[in-house]
Simulated scan of single mutants.
Amino acid sequence: MFNKLKWIDKNRVFIVFTLILIVQLYAVYYLVKNIYYKNKNVKGLVVMNTISKEDITYKPLKNLLYYYELNSNIEEVISPWAKYKAKYTINSDTLNERYEYKENKDNKVYRIITLGDSYTFGLYVNTENNWTEILEDMLNNSIVEKNICEKYNKVEIINLGVYGYDIQYSVERFNQRGKKYNPDLIIWLLKHDDTRQIADLINKAVVDKSDYYQELIKNKYETNLTDVQKGALIWDIAHEEIQNTLGVQKIFTIQNEILKNFNKTYKGKIVVVTFPNTPNEDKNFLKEYVKNRPNSNYFETIDIFSDKKLYFLNDYHPTKEGHEAIADDIYSYIISNNIISCN
């Protein structure tokens, strides 16, 4: 009898986390709400194959029940709306990176860590075409090869971005994967929705109210939606409900406490980056955080959404050209503001 109950309990855990995994895979799509709510018609919506669920591992924590990471040492090929197949190379530390990085760095190495969600991870583009990798090459070319900065002979950028991550997930990612690299600088890209997203609450709502959301979609939208389209809608509806229930200011208070704890872990230099289309209320939240934290900078990067070549029209993620534009803009900011001190 005991063994039977134990088997049932394990099965229940497996089912729950499989459902959560599906939702997280869908999370990257939730920006498509503009298409759904504007047209109420999804026949023309094109969707892509996202990262395989076999390449993701859930690692539930006491404070983050739905925490997950990509598996290490894998290559993932997806077929997005682009004309080519995007290829991610995940290194031994679960990072979307071209290289392996040793924990202990030489004094002549300037090390940067990047935090963020799918826009930092580099969704839909090859690993080497991500803005973090391009920026790494640009900094090495100018600071190192052109001997602009004699203090350093190498710049490393270690990308901790993961699609679907919110602020708290990114902090946990840094604690688990980033802190050991002892960075000299953190660049944290937070776009317009990141400051209002609390992933664990959204995931819990999706799991607890799955039947309700399925029925809501069945009655309100076309019946021929794909699983991906349903997942996008469910994530978006849950996200909106959480925001309406808590209110923006309450969410900002929660985020502020998370960032205060992050400040205790990392006291070094940080650049918070956002896009010009981020709502002023959210920009002010980020500016206030930077204002109250030593060694911090706020920067609005290029508006990639003003040029259709720079983002995928289907869900607004940067194209290869968009990543190049972001890298170039952040590079100019770093150099012109002497973020990497050579003194």
Rank of each mutant, 00 (worst) to 15 (best):
T195Y: 01
K83F: 10
Q176K: 15
I217K: 09
I251N: 00
L201W: 05
F262D: 02
Y331K: 12
I258G: 09
T319Q: 01
K220I: 12
N338V: 05
R177V: 05
T127K: 04
V171G: 10
A325G: 03
T195N: 05
K264V: 06
L185V: 03
N96C: 04
F252K: 07
P80A: 12
D211F: 09
Y212A: 11
I234M: 14
I8R: 10
K283E: 00
F285K: 06
K269Y: 07
I326K: 02
W81T: 15
E54A: 15
P80V: 03
K283Q: 02
E281R: 05
Y119Q: 08
L135W: 02
L31Q: 12
E215D: 14
H192G: 07
N277A: 07
Y58K: 05
K154M: 08
Y266F: 13
N147F: 08
K6H: 11
I51A: 15
I187T: 01
N3T: 06
I15P: 00
K218D: 14
N11Y: 06
N73V: 08
G164C: 12
K38V: 00
N219W: 08
Q176W: 03
V273W: 02
N130F: 00
D315V: 08
H239A: 13
V32E: 14
E288V: 06
Y37Q: 02
Y84D: 12
K105A: 13
N126C: 01
F299Y: 15
I51S: 08
K108I: 01
V171L: 09
L185Y: 01
I134T: 02
T223N: 13
I157C: 03
